[in-house]
Amino acid sequence: MPPLVLKIAPWALLVASNIFMTFAWYGHLKNKSLALPVAILSSWLIALPEYMLAVPANRIGSGMYSTAQLKVGQEVITLLVFILFSYFYLGEAIKWSTIAGFGLIVAGVAVVFYFR
């Protein structure tokens, strides 16, 4: 694969995997009348494609990035996907304290990437 693809592919795959995982973990909250066993089973079925994206993302990414960089990058992706999901899918307001807290996490990510 060309070097640019190797740099971008892990992040694109992690974005896709996080979208699946966010729906697996939190999607059932929109319909709380759904029986818990059904919510669990459907979450597991949604999580399968997440793993099918996350594992190759980390395998490909490990040739270009450290494990710590992949992990903290994944956390930033998770936060961004979660903010969009909770606002657009669950209809929840985004509070300043949520943005501030997530900003502190992003600052930690910057430290990991800057001092590698």
Score class of each variant (00 low, 15 high):
residue 28 H to E: 06
residue 7 K to L: 11
residue 80 L to C: 08
residue 50 E to P: 06
residue 78 T to M: 07
residue 51 Y to S: 12
residue 72 V to I: 11
residue 58 N to H: 10
residue 98 T to N: 03
residue 116 R to G: 14
residue 7 K to I: 06
residue 68 A to Y: 08
residue 3 P to T: 03
residue 12 A to Y: 05
residue 2 P to N: 15
residue 34 L to Y: 05
residue 65 Y to N: 10
residue 15 V to C: 09
residue 21 M to P: 04
residue 2 P to K: 15
residue 97 S to F: 06
residue 27 G to D: 04
residue 6 L to Y: 12
residue 22 T to S: 00
residue 1 M to H: 15
residue 38 V to S: 00
residue 80 L to R: 00
residue 91 G to A: 07
residue 111 V to S: 00
residue 29 L to M: 05
residue 87 Y to V: 11
residue 10 P to N: 04
residue 41 L to F: 12
residue 8 I to D: 10
residue 6 L to Q: 15
residue 40 I to L: 01
residue 115 F to R: 12
residue 108 G to I: 02
residue 28 H to Y: 11
residue 98 T to Q: 08
residue 51 Y to I: 12
residue 54 A to H: 10
residue 72 V to K: 00
residue 72 V to L: 06
residue 5 V to N: 11
residue 15 V to M: 06
residue 28 H to T: 03
residue 32 K to T: 09
residue 76 V to Y: 04
residue 97 S to W: 05
residue 91 G to T: 03
residue 78 T to D: 04
residue 23 F to T: 05
residue 31 N to K: 00
residue 108 G to Y: 02
residue 109 V to A: 14
residue 67 T to S: 13
residue 1 M to P: 14
residue 39 A to Y: 00
residue 68 A to W: 09
residue 62 S to A: 15
residue 88 F to R: 14
residue 13 L to W: 14
residue 110 A to Q: 02
residue 89 Y to A: 01
residue 50 E to Q: 14
residue 58 N to I: 07
residue 52 M to C: 15
residue 25 W to Q: 10
residue 59 R to T: 12
residue 99 I to P: 13
residue 51 Y to N: 13
residue 89 Y to I: 05
residue 77 I to V: 08
residue 16 A to R: 10
residue 99 I to S: 06
residue 21 M to C: 06
residue 42 S to D: 01
residue 91 G to P: 09
residue 79 L to K: 08
residue 27 G to E: 03
residue 98 T to E: 07
residue 111 V to I: 07
residue 34 L to E: 09
residue 66 S to K: 12
residue 106 V to Q: 02
residue 53 L to Y: 12
residue 96 W to M: 11
residue 55 V to A: 14
residue 70 L to M: 14
residue 44 W to A: 14
residue 78 T to A: 08
residue 14 L to S: 09
residue 108 G to N: 01
residue 79 L to A: 11
residue 80 L to Q: 00
residue 39 A to K: 02
residue 23 F to L: 11
residue 37 P to W: 02
residue 42 S to Y: 00
residue 67 T to N: 13
residue 26 Y to H: 04
residue 102 F to Q: 00
residue 92 E to R: 09
residue 71 K to T: 15
residue 85 F to N: 06
residue 61 G to A: 11
residue 65 Y to C: 10
residue 116 R to A: 12
residue 96 W to T: 10
residue 71 K to P: 04
residue 14 L to D: 01
residue 1 M to F: 15
residue 12 A to S: 08
residue 103 G to P: 07
residue 94 I to C: 05
residue 29 L to W: 00
residue 47 A to T: 04
residue 9 A to D: 09
residue 4 L to R: 06
residue 113 F to N: 05
residue 50 E to V: 01
residue 1 M to A: 14
residue 70 L to V: 13
residue 9 A to F: 11
residue 65 Y to E: 11
residue 10 P to R: 04
residue 44 W to H: 09
residue 70 L to A: 12
residue 101 G to W: 03
residue 70 L to P: 12
